[in-house]
Amino acid sequence: MSRFAVPDLGVGVGFRVPHYGVVINERPRMDWFEVIAENFMLDGGPPLDNLSRLQAAYPVVPHGVSMSLGDAVDEDHERRLLALLARLNPPWFSDHACWTGHAGVNTHDLLPLPHTEAVLRHVVDRIKRAQDRSGRLFAVENVSSYLSYRASTMPEAEFLAELCERADCALLLDVNNVFVSSVNHGFAPEEYLRALPLDRVVQLHLAGHSVREGFRLDTHDYPVCDEVWALYSAVIRETGPVSTLIEWDDLIPSFERLQAEADAARRVRDEAKAP
């Protein structure tokens, strides 16, 4: 059970451009939607109109990709994010344990952090600031990674556990990212999960990925694979029912296909709840 008083929203999907019309006009069956925060941190225009209509029909939770917690605060980003949070009033908001750029240059990628005490302290401060300024619960997400730093002094799961504890924040556990990184770095995903504070999990991510020569790439362009479903089942047995989100961001299928993927997640949740 979560230590945080947040709702279990059920199983949702990302709100993506190809589905704007069907979602807004037909209000299809779906428990909730996640929106990429930065896509709506705008001054105006059709995206904000669509967001208003989405919010009128479904629970909506923003998920960021550009806070760059491993680097300095971008005040323009922070101001716009706070405005979006005020508009949506979500039960939590989230972004990644990563950095995206430095000294004014942005890569727009979720670059992994060195797992050191100094970096940990920096990210803790950033998350505390985000929670203090927003007055809301922040959930930090584990990233898929393709590199490891020689300078790291602790495993990623230990880093995340310590981060959540010191910042007193929630965890958005991306199960696909755990699996992708476990293959890329050669660790056991079950051990990784055991090291995490699962009582801090307020949301789970599921997604598909690509198999490349020598590594797995987190592409969000395939169905969830069997190994990730198995990990999801193991996690949900520990956490109990937790808001779950299917990410499918490239080669985006029909909304009906996404509904089927969400139904598959619901079945796993139901099985995990069964005595």
Partner: peptide, 21 residues
């Protein structure tokens, strides 16, 4: 600066990010 992994050398690891960029 990188440790390498089961399928990628240290330079290949950072190369993944360069390609994605």
């Amino acid at each position: 600066m990188f440790g390498g992994g089961p399928g990628l050398s240290p330079a290949q690891q950072i190369g993944v990010y360069a390609e994605q960029h």
